[in-house]
Amino acid sequence: MAENVRSVIARNTWKENQVLRQILGICSALAVTNLMTNSLVMGLGLMFVTALSSLTISLLRNYTPYRIRMIVMTLIIASYVILVDIFLKANLPEISKALGPYVGLIITNCIIMGRAEAFAQKNPPLLSLLDGFFAGVGYTVVLLIISFFREFLGFGTLFGYEISFVSFEPWTIMVMPPAAFFIIGVLIWISSNLFAPKGKKKP
């Protein structure tokens, strides 16, 4: 696989966005997106975990026996998630409480495992670090788009600040789960029209 830095960046942020094109990491993408602040923190946490666990897995790739690689990866990921969790509890206790179990659930976020399996296993450490980081960036961008709509329409605020120049009745539905499903469905629709390989008919 001969990939350079630029193609890694482009692939992970837009062309094969993990959430919209690969349908990975949906759980947390939907659960935390009712407020933009929560999504941003979650996105940063995920970026940190994906980047560093990709780096670590890539550094250890020649020493990890193939059969037990899954458990090794899970342990590495879990260690970084614990770091994020402790950091949030210490510095941002309110957000940590709002995110609840979803911080711990970064462990089972398929994006990290996916990047580890598909990329960090076979590529040099620095490229893997970059790959993981930009997979996280792509995730964060999607989260921010979803939460922009949900927070703006649901509460009339952005990052907790009142938007005063427009006033309307907030849509309570936007705060509730169904809206998250609708928004991500539409985003997937748009992105699959924008980035789908040309000339390939869907069955």
Binding site: I23, I173, P178, F181, G185, S192
Partner: peptide, 18 residues
């Protein structure tokens, strides 16, 4: 076009959640 597969699955799920 493009809605088949995951896209429509999410929208159905949204209706179910509703």
């Amino acid at each position: 076009k493009g809605l088949a597969g995951p896209g429509i699955a999410f929208i159905i799920t949204g209706i179910m959640a509703l």
